[in-house]
Amino acid sequence: MPEQRPAVPFRITEFAPSDIERRLEFVNLGPDDREHIVAVKPDVVDHLDEHVAAFFEHLNKFEESRGLTGRPELLEEARRLKREHLVAMVSGDYGRDYIEQRFQLGQVYSRAALEVSIFMGAFHALMSSIGRRIVSRFPAKPIDGFEHFTSIKKVAFFDIAIIVDAMMADREQTIRQQEEAIRELSTPTLQVRDGLLILPIIGLLDTQRAKQLTDSLLHAIRVHRARVVVMDITGVATVDSKVANHLIQTVEAAALMGASVIVTGVSAEVAQSLVTLGVDLGRIRTLGDLQGGLEEAERILGYSVVRGAGSFEPA
């Protein structure tokens, strides 16, 4: 999987001024809107507590937001950032600092495992609270109230996009780290005798993993000075021609390092499908199970295991 630059900047440092401009264009925020926002500033700033309360009361209604509402320290931070948010929202300045604040808030939500869907509901409650204040300022001409509210809503949508991006970015990063961890864990190479390695393969074998597996095997061969490797594919559910090709390449690469590979654990289904596909594994030495593979490897290396009296005691 080639590493590609994500479409959405992950960190505030990746936000160029042009990105911010572009995003403001996306929500169509013009000079009129900025005037409107200045005009209704008191409706937001003078009733901060009311608006913030609307947001968190909405969250309180749902069990799913316990991650935030049930954790006082996160909740406190979220409240503080939310207040700052509202003040900044009507300040008319939507530069880098503003974006950074949005990112912080998004990260708090993501730490609290707040679902985007609940967040959207709460944000809507907040906007309604603001909307009511603004519209009630223009009792004679509700359409003016609507126009003013629309201007501030543009900023709100600009914000939502950033906060959601921040929450997504955080989640994607977690997923990437986990994938990496699984990948690392999934291909151990174990030495069982001098010169004898076993390589149990479990799970799906894609191109990326096959490459990594070959790589780690070859390095293990060098480090352990292995002559024989037993590769057990019992845990590989399906083997298609692509996977078989990867296995052949691994075996041949190991042979170039002077190690011979024994493949074990080819199940009946896998064997059938390989034959049906016409994959030629003729150059690969295969044996039924891991035990058979180990015994063959020991024979090649000149080991002989003799069973004595033993000293087995039940624990």
């Binding site: 490459k211 070859l218 061969i221 002559r227 042979a255 390092m257």
Partner: peptide, 21 residues
């Protein structure tokens, strides 16, 4: 190791040649 991988991926072989570590 890297050379071995490259050889295999390029479809080249050393069949008939003995190899050792």
């Amino acid at each position: 190791p890297d050379v071995a991988i490259a050889i295999v991926q390029l479809g080249l072989t050393l069949h008939g040649v003995a190899t050792a570590l």
